[in-house]
Design a protein around this nucleic acid. Structure first.
Lengths: 158, 158
DNA sequence: CCTTGATCTCAAGATTACTTGAGATTGTAC
DNA sequence: GTACAATCTCAAGTAATCTTGAGATCAAGG
């Protein structure tokens, strides 16, 4: 067994990740992280959970839903502690996605610049509108953002 | 008065913007657009509403909340139809904001690349985490995204 | 031992952004 | 003039992401 004394209480995890205790409980409930229990019934988290939660926070700031993130995290091994190459596999997909986003924003910026230059008044018909047109509505609730889904590193371009 | 026959019914606006009729009603309710009424009680929208709604859609895809967007749109004149330079003022702030986002993503990308290279295992303490750390929680509900607020073109850097 | 803080569970509330449904009215094409 | 589509209002529902509250238990210091 792993050294028990190195396991963390939920408050410690909250402090190290900057998340609220309630948020961490919620993330466990929806299966984004897991914990063991002490005899008292208190949750005990493995230290690698901090890394996992940090990843979640970054992804969220990029606009991914928790479902998207869970999908990504599912490539990490369940039984053993994720190692360097596990995390690197995740990160590569991440970089691909970032590149797409950057390219998308740059395109939008150019279009917008063009629009300012030409002063066109029919935004609805101009290129700018069409540039942002692809990622339309995806059901109810808060809308998704730039780009619909995260790029999975394993998936080829088809 | 402006030519009445050029006013649009809500269905026509929906068709031209790709928004649902219910969404347009909702946007009116929360003060993002406004309409006059025909004798029948049916809404009539000015054609410039299409442009306004297009702007809203683009902003949403960039992750702005409707509150953010309303704030931005408030710089447009209420009484007269927004003209070229009105829209250009809006667009300039937009471009500034896009530039910030692009820079932020590029920074994140570099950090991430560095992380892959160094294979560091303490994500919570590494630069990557701190890079995405600024835009933390802002109350309840769905989280905000890259960058907290839209850049207003009028506002100077202070 | 006693107090104080951390933790537990479970239910309910909050926020954003809409959609859906019911029941009524209007507009239009044949 | 009679369908049938479009529109109206108003209330309620949905989805994602958490937070808050109540009431109980656990842990650690004095």
């Amino acid at each position: 067994m792993t050294d028990q004394s190195r396991l963390l209480a939920i408050g410690a995890v909250a402090e190290r990740t900057g998340l609220a205790v309630s948020a961490i409980r919620f993330y466990e409930e929806v299966g984004l992280v897991n914990s063991t229990r002490a005899d008292s019934g208190h949750r005990r988290f493995h230290r690698s959970t901090i890394r996992r939660l940090s990843f979640i926070r970054i992804c969220q700031q990029l606009g991914y839903s928790l479902d998207d993130i869970r999908e990504q995290l599912d490539v990490l091994p369940d039984k053993r502690t994720p190692n360097e190459s596990d995390w690197n596999r995740l990160s590569s997909g991440f970089v691909l996605d970032l590149d797409q986003r950057i390219a998308g924003l740059q395109l939008l910026r150019e279009k917008l610049d063009g629009c300012i230059g030409c002063g066109c008044l029919s935004l609805a018909k101009c290129e700018l509108y069409n540039a942002g047109d692809s990622a339309a509505t995806l059901g109810a609730g808060p809308r998704y953002l730039l780009g619909d889904k995260m790029v999975t590193s394993a998936k080829s371009t088809e």
